[in-house]
Design a protein around this nucleic acid. Structure first.
Lengths: 329, 329
DNA sequence: CTGAAAGCGCTTACAG
DNA sequence: CTGAAAGCGCTTACAG
């Protein structure tokens, strides 16, 4: 492989000059710039990134830690982040925490060793822990890591909009399947839903809300739905709001197994609007997270990292589809 | 950050000795080893990987290029590879080719610049192109890159098993929805299916096979199914074998929209056995790829890279579920 | 068995 | 505006 020395020799300049041309330093005379660029092309020179990293303590890499890349939500997020990083000429180093806090910590340490430009973490839980001693920018997306700044959708507002939607359709007996309460996301969505229902109770005191604790997975949704559907039809809830799409899809699956019509007998809503939400039958009403914005703002937060930058709260969009309909009187 | 020099000073040895201890050189006296390790712990020393990379031209990274990480199949593959890489203390650098050959090429070049231990490519297409000039090991998984060695499931055999399965259930009018024929996977699956059907025709000449060209996506399956289901019920195929699960799920979706019962009126099979296959309704009969094995063997191929190592063909498992049943007489 | 020293390929003050 | 030179933190022959 050609080195910067070879380029310098070919162009008849010093290595320092080559380096300056490569970094776009405008003080180099145009004539020399051309000679250097020609030599680069002629030799097929590619800078040694390890050498650059050793000098600058920085490498064009964004670290990304997610609980589980095979979860479609994280896969879509990872794709958006990779695409956005590519725009800035950075690659993404991916790590799974397997929903395990110690693993997450090890992965972050391993990433830090590689001196990336920054690390984006979708945290397992938001329990506060010591700050990492490093110059590397760390931000969290969707699920807060300790007290690092967070880029996220306004989960509470999204849940509130779903509550409004179901109330507006005439539903008065509503079940909410919550996500894990040791996660920011799980709590925020539940809180938003609950407080909006409380507010709506002013308009109609008949509103009843039952809350179930789930795990953000298909199976969890299916299991909980089975419990809910065990109630006699007359007393059963007419709407089930799930804390994410996978839970909701589990509910749909259970409803189908039990021959319960959606939305005729029960309305079902999700959250996140993963690709799959519009592919299931019936298509799932869900709250769409602005994935591209989450990715863009996370990457931006890393590049513009003034120490202790603020949280970013993004607004999503309620996607009304055929899984929710008017309550049966 | 503490450097190797600090460790050497603290332990009262030379940096060369520290380096040897860290790399597990057994010629260092146990007493010194202990002193060095104590110093490492005391200072919280983490080796500078960029410096190491500069010397060794190698970094503990595996590059992974997939067409689209938000495709559940690639997401599951990426997870398996990341997990397997972690076992060997390597991280994964992820890149999407967005199903575009020039982008794939750029991503591979960008990865090569980072001198990873090796690169695993799930290629956009297998058109032969020039070899990359590099010492970095390159292998392809599932979809061959040019003439690099390939780790894959025996797609032809899997398709043949599905053909047997449908034939055994009494199906004689069968449709096959093929994947793109400019991909190895698309061709191998179609060829396997077709040649087994041809063989079965010896046993019953009444077997009819119609072939449709699809794109490996949900929508493509739905669109093609709509065409297939447009035929009068009496002449319609009684079984549809799709080249992957997403196509098959699209078919299921269309069948439901048109109130066609699966498997009573038509049997449907997929290929890959992504997580979703067992979550749709009815659960999808599919051919399971041995993901963990694919990941293990890919990583192994990189580490054991004798120049020009052979292809690896792994056997999968037919998963019979409720989307396929006896043909209506 | 251990240490001194060269050198990997860059970037960046600094001198001119 | 350009070049000479130091130095980033390691690893690895080599000498002793």
């Amino acid at each position: 492989m050609a080195t910067i020395k070879d380029v310098a020799a070919t162009a008849g300049v010093s290595v320092g000059t080559v380096s300056k041309v490569l970094s776009g330093d405008p003080t180099v005379k145009p004539a020399l710039q051309t000679r250097v660029r020609d030599a680069v092309t002629q030799l097929g020179y590619r800078p040694n990134l390890a050498a650059r990293a050793l000098r600058t303590n920085m490498v064009n890499v964004i670290g990304l830690v997610v609980p589980d890349i095979s979860n479609p939500y994280f896969a879509q997020l990872a794709k958006a982040i990779e695409t956005e990083a590519a725009v800035r000429d950075h690659m993404v180093m991916l790590a799974n925490s397997h929903d395990d806090k110690p693993t997450e910590h090890r992965q972050i340490m391993a990433l830090l060793d590689r001196t990336p430009r920054g690390i984006i973490v979708c945290a397992v839980s938001d329990e506060v822990s010591d700050r990492y001693v490093t110059d590397t920018a760390i931000v969290s997306v969707d699920r807060r890591l300790s007290d690092y700044s967070l880029i996220s959708t306004d989960h509470a507002e999204g849940s509130a909009q779903i509550a409004d939607h179901l109330f507006g359709l005439g539903h008065r007996r509503i079940a909410y399947i919550a996500g894990p309460q040791d996660t920011f996301v799980g709590r925020a969505r539940l809180a938003g839903f609950q407080s909006r229902i409380d507010a709506l109770r002013q308009r109609d005191p008949a509103v009843e809300l039952t809350i179930h604790n789930g795990h953000f997975g298909y199976q969890s949704g299916e299991d909980i739905a089975r419990t809910i559907f065990a109630a006699p039809a007359a007393q059963r809830v007419t709407a089930i709001a799930a804390a994410n799409d996978q839970l909701a899809i589990g509910v749909l699956r259970c409803a189908r197994d039990l021959q319960i019509e959606v939305p005729a007998q029960v309305s079902v809503t999700g959250f996140d609007d993963i690709d799959l939400a519009s592919l299931v039958v019936p298509r799932l009403t869900s709250f769409q997270q602005p994935m591209d914005q989450l990715a863009k703002r996370s990457i931006a937060a890393i590049f513009d990292c003034k120490a202790g930058s603020a949280d970013v709260l993004l607004q999503g969009t309620l996607m009304v589809r055929s899984s929710s309909g008017a309550a049966q009187i």
